[in-house]
Simulated assay, not measured.
Amino acid sequence: MRRNGGLGFIYLSLLVALLLTVMPMPQQVKLFRPDWALLVVLYWTMALPGRVNILTAFVLGFLTDVLIGTVLGVNALAFSVVAFIVAVNHLKIRNFSVIQQALLMGLFLALYHLLLFWLSHFLTGVYFLPAYLWPVLTGMLVWPWLFWLLRRYRRQFKIQ
């Protein structure tokens, strides 16, 4: 029963991340919003790759597509690619310090945004703007606190 309960707590954290992703914000601040859903998926993929995997990332990316109103499958594909890289290297990433992980998450977020741009450019003709990468910086800055919060959450509720 504990395993199912742990899965419920994981899904609850993913739901909160989706809510943070679509929460209304002023236009000036919206540009800097971290990619909450992707960061939470990456944490759980790194911490528990047997429970949260590429399929979970795909479903959460698809839900992000639906909630944000982008072309269906764009976020799903980008979430899946980044989650695959984290899942394959989760043992190495776990051994890094939180600061090193934040830098690595910055690379993963940059890859995610470049994949999003490339797919959006191919499908709808969007042009690249440097401001498109602000969430990479904010995601790197948020990672240590998000890591600490989710790790504490995982240990408190004994999620395995």
Rank of each mutant, 00 (worst) to 15 (best):
D65P: 02
D65N: 07
D65F: 04
V66K: 07
V66N: 04
V66D: 09
V66P: 07
L67T: 05
L67N: 08
L67D: 02
I68K: 04
I68H: 10
I68F: 09
I68S: 03
I68R: 04
G69R: 11
G69F: 10
T70K: 15
V71I: 06
L72V: 06
V74C: 06
A76Q: 01
L77C: 04
L77M: 03
L77E: 02
A78P: 00
A78G: 01
A78L: 06
F79T: 00
F79M: 03
S80W: 02
V81I: 06
V82F: 04
V82G: 01
A83Y: 00
A83G: 02
A83F: 00
A83T: 00
F84I: 05
F84V: 02
I85Q: 06
V86Y: 00
A87W: 01
A87T: 04
A87Q: 03
A87V: 00
V88I: 07
V88L: 03
N89L: 10
H90W: 08
L91Y: 03
L91T: 03
L91F: 07
I93L: 11
I93Y: 10
I93F: 04
I93H: 11
I93K: 01
I93D: 01
R94M: 00
R94E: 00
R94C: 00
N95W: 07
F96S: 04
F96N: 09
F96V: 00
V98H: 07
I99M: 10
I99F: 15
I99L: 15
I99S: 12
Q100V: 14
Q101E: 02
Q101T: 03
A102D: 14
A102I: 09
A102F: 14
A102L: 15
L103T: 15
L103V: 13
M105N: 03
M105D: 01
M105P: 06
G106D: 10
G106I: 07
G106W: 11
G106R: 14
L107Q: 11
F108S: 03
F108W: 05
L109R: 05
A110F: 03
L111A: 08
Y112W: 06
Y112G: 13
Y112A: 12
H113Q: 10
H113A: 15
L114P: 12
L114K: 14
L115S: 05
L116A: 09
L116R: 14
F117T: 08
F117A: 09
W118L: 10
W118V: 05
W118G: 12
W118Q: 08
W118K: 11
S120R: 15
H121S: 04
F122I: 06
F122K: 08
T124F: 08
T124Q: 08
T124S: 05
T124D: 11
G125Q: 00
G125K: 04
G125N: 00
G125D: 02
G125H: 04
V126G: 12
V126C: 10
F128G: 13
F128R: 12
F128P: 15
F128A: 08
F128W: 11
F128K: 12
L129C: 14
A131M: 10
A131F: 13
Y132G: 15
Y132I: 15
Y132E: 13
Y132N: 15
L133A: 11
W134F: 14
W134V: 12
W134C: 14
W134N: 12
P135C: 13
V136P: 05
V136Q: 03
V136N: 09
V136A: 12
L137C: 06
L137P: 10
T138R: 08
G139L: 12
G139S: 13
M140D: 10
M140N: 12
